[in-house]
Nucleic acid binder design. Structure first.
Lengths: 181, 181
DNA sequence: CGCTTGTACTCATTTAATGAATACAGGTTA
DNA sequence: TAACCTGTATTCATTAAATGAGTACAAGCG
């Protein structure tokens, strides 16, 4: 797993999530990603890359493909989730993101799919992430205490992070209220 | 400029910024990046990648290299900023980042170098970014108004962004106070 | 004199990401 | 009816970023 790996495998799980709702082929998935209400706001995947990802996921054993005569003229590959793919997706769905920078893509993606499942799943996801955010918040305090100089760059950086995390906590709170009501 | 390009050229400008303070060679720059107080908190660049970046920047005409007999035993390349490199860096330094996701790396990097320059530069940078953040804030309002359903994913996403942006505005305010005092 | 440590850089390989190409069915228009 | 455009569906060659491992040598130490 050497070169490049922005946020750990986020787009990949989106694909698994879409396929969790039934088998589909690449072209379909791309159309969904491009148009589907919320996801298109967060993600953009080029067609050719999407096919590459499907290939990779099949190589990892998370997907299996069946070539079927397509609606249009011929050959197209139906992908469906394997048992191991389902497990990987389920595990991903309930795991909090581990870094603040992954919130936007990582957490929102999870939230999207949790909402399709149940209010209880949403609540569980939000609560777990809230706890993790609190951990981040507490980790920053010592950093702040360590910098006596108010103008130090380190401190300014820590304050930036703290502000972002507090905003996340606040937003998670709002979400819990509106989404699980 | 096809494949990969996370935030537009951020690491590259860090290198230009370091070289703006005098010529250096790759090994040196790597040590600085690894140890230097604040930058190491934001950035991590592997040695081999750093050399690749220097190469690229030289190809772009922003740097020039002179092979000098090194301290240790032999060959090493001193890099120095060209006039065009200096211009590119200066332009970058005062330009606000254009997306919220670039704040952490992009804006903090600029802030780091602005601080080395003058309090006036810091103030100018913060003010410009503040204005840009306000623009983002205003751009979100219509998105919120467009979603009547409080539980819609779109709305939840917009609220996340809004919270993050507000936290940035708040932090920029704090920064202006403490850093330009 | 062999060993580790620090200086300084290079290289082959892996992987991500992109733009462009391919292929064909079905409908439109001139 | 032939030329053409649009929608379906996927593949491929190329480029660029990122990494780990490797090279080379000086200097100090035991």
């Amino acid at each position: 797993m050497s070169p490049r790996q922005q946020a750990p495998l986020s787009t990949e799980y989106i694909l698994l999530g879409l396929l969790a709702q039934g088998p589909a082929h690449g072209y379909d998935l791309h159309k969904q990603l491009a148009t589907l209400d919320g996801l298109s706001a967060i993600w953009h995947v080029k067609q050719s890359q999407l096919y590459a990802l499907l290939d990779k996921l099949e190589g990892m054993g998370y997907l299996q493909s069946v070539s079927t005569p397509g609606t249009a003229y011929a050959l197209r590959k139906q992908y469906h989730l394997t048992e191991s793919g389902r497990q990987a997706f389920d595990a991903w769905l309930i795991s909090p993101v581990q870094h603040a920078r992954e919130m936007r893509q990582g957490f929102l993606a999870r939230l999207y799919f949790a909402r399709l499942s149940s209010a209880a799943a949403v609540q569980q996801l939000i609560d777990a992430q809230y706890t993790t955010c609190l951990d981040w918040q507490h980790d920053i305090q010592p950093e702040l205490d360590a910098t006596s100089d108010l103008k130090s760059f380190q401190r300014v950086v820590s304050l930036f992070r703290l502000n972002q995390i507090n905003a996340m906590l606040n937003w998670l709170d709002e979400c819990r209220k509106t989404l699980t009501a």
